[in-house]
């Protein structure tokens, strides 16, 4: 697996450097220079942070696409590399970059906190969990489809699934907003302890990530290359 990491890091050094560069601008500088200390809260930065980390979810698509185009996915399986290791490397690499990106984004959160309410550890963790959780969820949806259908078809399936989830999620949200039970639920979420929420978000993301990894391994073991 070390060889796979080395290869991907060597090949994607330049694009990743650019991504981090863009991330630094998007996640730290933009919110700092546009901060409205009267109105903005650290949670507002989730948008900026998640946007930056969302870009990282493109990474496995690029790598798997390039592997398919160059034949590296076929060649590396003739090396002492198992299919499970190939899949795991893509998951770990993306997770690693997501964490780095989320931590970069959290720099913006800290600076906003310092300028407004002062540093709040629990709120920081909640923001970080949202910045990390959203792209992790996206990646967990995307990867099994890439390993099952390949890059070209997988990306269409992902777009379809994303649209379906988005529309159903929005429908449930709107429906819940107009019911007493739904409003009560949202009220409870707003009043809940930030730390508990952060732990819940990270736990759910971790479970989805693990299920996604298992599915991808299963799909790729059956894949004919």
């Amino acid at each position: 697996m070390k060889a796979l990491f080395r290869r991907d890091l060597l090949v994607f050094t330049t694009p990743l450097f650019l991504l981090v560069f863009v991330g630094l601008f998007g996640e730290i500088l933009v919110p700092i220079f546009h901060v409205d200390t009267e109105q903005n809260t650290p949670l507002d930065l989730v948008f900026f942070g998640a946007m930056g980390t969302m870009m990282i979810t493109i990474l496995p698509q690029s790598i798997i696409g390039q592997d398919e185009n160059t034949g590296w996915n076929r060649f590396c399986l003739t090396m002492p590399v198992k299919r499970t290791q190939y899949v795991s490397e893509k998951y770990l690499l993306t997770l690693g970059f997501l964490i780095v990106s989320a931590l970069v984004a959290s720099g913006g959160v800290i600076s906003l906190m310092v300028q407004t309410t002062g540093f709040d550890g629990k709120m920081y963790l909640l923001t970080l969990s949202l910045i990390l959780g959203a792209p992790l969820f996206m990646m967990s949806l995307d990867m099994p489809l890439l390993f099952r259908f390949g890059m070209k078809r997988g990306i269409y399936f992902f777009a379809g699934l994303f649209l379906l989830l988005f529309v159903s999620g929005l429908s449930v949200f709107l429906w819940a907003s107009y019911t007493d039970g739904g409003r009560a639920f949202f009220q409870q979420v707003q009043e809940a302890d930030s730390l508990v929420l952060a732990v819940c978000i990270l736990s759910v993301s971790a479970v989805i990530y693990a299920v996604s990894w298992r599915l991808s391994c299963r799909f790729y073991r059956k894949q004919e290359i």
């Binding site: 060597l10 160059t70 076929r74 060649f75």
Partner: peptide, 28 residues
């Protein structure tokens, strides 16, 4: 086992020198 396919599957951005580090990590 050593395998050679009809196409070179190595990353085009790399050099023969850097390629070595990948295979050094792969093969005992």
């Amino acid at each position: 086992i050593g395998v050679v396919f009809d196409e070179c599957c190595f990353p085009t951005e790399l050099t023969a020198h850097r390629l070595r580090s990948i295979f050094r990590a792969a093969y005992r």
